[in-house]
Computed example of a mutant assay.
Amino acid sequence: MAFRQLWWSLAVSNVCDGVRLAALPVLAAACTAQPLLVSAVVVLPRLPWLIAPLLAVPIDTADRRRFLAAADLSRGVALLAAAAVALLAGVSIPLLIAVGVVLGVGEVYFNSALTAMLPAVAPADRLLRANARLATTETVAQSAGHPLGGFLAGVAAAAPLVFDAVTYFGSWWFVRQVPPQVPVPNVAARGDGLR
């Protein structure tokens, strides 16, 4: 049951990631004709992955479900705020960069916590299959989000922001259904297998 909830949460969250990856550059291109600024909207949200090991350090010793929930909630709130700004003042490059970076950091925490939590929710003899299922779902869900993101960006500037906000809250709901987990001990910290 816990694995299934995580699986649904991953699927929903990665549809959002796909929508974002397609919509933000489209919205940026509608704001400016300067390729460098459009590139900044695409590249800067990916920078958190360069420091992902540093960002993910607390996940090893905490309730990973909290990190999943916090990542979804923070991304949903950031997107609602960005949608409100877009409706009131219009979309701008600084707004797209700011929301993109917040979403990028949330993605690092979400993916790292989910990966670390997997051994606690999947039996050891099914871990390989569970991992493959999550990896496949991530690819398919993001791929499904790409055309949806382009379509929503064409409908209205705030449409992909509102869609992703609501969908991240849906992912958060699935995470909340997972019972709290005891962190799986870090093998390297115990020294097992190092001799």
Rank of each mutant, 00 (worst) to 15 (best):
R133C: 03
R4H: 10
L194G: 08
D17W: 00
P185I: 01
V19A: 03
F3D: 04
L134I: 03
W49L: 07
D164T: 14
Q181R: 13
A52D: 09
A122R: 04
P123I: 11
V140N: 04
L194D: 15
W172G: 09
F110V: 05
L79R: 00
F169A: 13
P179G: 04
L88C: 04
P160H: 06
V187N: 12
Q177W: 12
N111F: 10
G106P: 02
A33R: 04
A29M: 01
L54D: 10
N14C: 12
A89H: 09
D125Y: 12
V91S: 01
Q177D: 11
V121I: 11
A130Y: 08
A22S: 12
P180W: 09
N111E: 13
S39L: 13
A130Q: 10
V140P: 00
L47G: 09
V99R: 00
V182C: 15
A71C: 07
G193V: 01
V38C: 01
A141Y: 02
G100T: 10
S9I: 09
L95N: 02
R126L: 11
V108H: 02
L24W: 09
I97N: 02
V155M: 13
G193E: 02
D125Q: 13
T136N: 15
R65F: 06
A98T: 08
A159S: 02
C16T: 13
A29P: 12
P45Q: 12
A70F: 07
G191R: 08
R20C: 14
V26M: 03
S9H: 11
V91K: 02
V175T: 08
V19T: 10
V105C: 12
A122G: 06
T32V: 12
A2Q: 13
L10D: 05
R64F: 01
L54S: 10
N14F: 07
D17H: 09
V77Q: 01
M1Y: 13
V42Y: 04
V175P: 01
Q5L: 08
A113D: 02
P53K: 14
